[in-house]
């Protein structure tokens, strides 16, 4: 399929991904509610996925999207396990505060 090239410079796409990643990281670091931590993690995953797709588009091959599919799989698995943990945590503690889970301190 003929293509007119990328719509934007590659650097702008990368910058977008970096900003999204840092926002997600900030969320992971600041939120105490496990649900919000999970959502922030999703943001970070999306930033990485975006970089893959962008790279695939830059080189015009399917590998980038294959990686995206794998990240999608990973995200699905991660969310399933993490939500199971959320449910279990809430059942035991009546709270989603991850700072209360410091039973492993040395």
């Amino acid at each position: 399929m003929e293509s007119p090239g990328l719509v934007i410079p590659v650097e702008h796409g990368l910058l977008f991904a970096a900003v999204l990643f840092c926002i997600g990281l900030a969320g992971v670091l600041t939120r105490r509610n496990l649900l919000f931590v999970l959502m922030s993690l999703e943001l970070m995953l999306n930033a990485v996925a975006f970089v893959f797709v962008l790279a695939g588009a830059v080189h015009g091959n399917a590998d980038g999207q294959v990686m995206f599919v794998l990240i999608l799989t990973l995200a699905a698995a991660e969310v399933a396990i993490a939500l199971a943990l959320v449910v279990q945590l809430y059942r035991r503690r009546r709270s989603l505060d991850i700072d209360s889970l410091d039973g492993m301190r040395g």
Binding site: T30, R32, V37, D99, L101, D102, M104, R105, G106
Partner: peptide, 18 residues
Amino acid sequence: WLSITQNGRLRRYAAGIA
């Protein structure tokens, strides 16, 4: 000394990674 870092706080660990 090292076990101070092992405070069991998930966010501290994440910050460590960052």
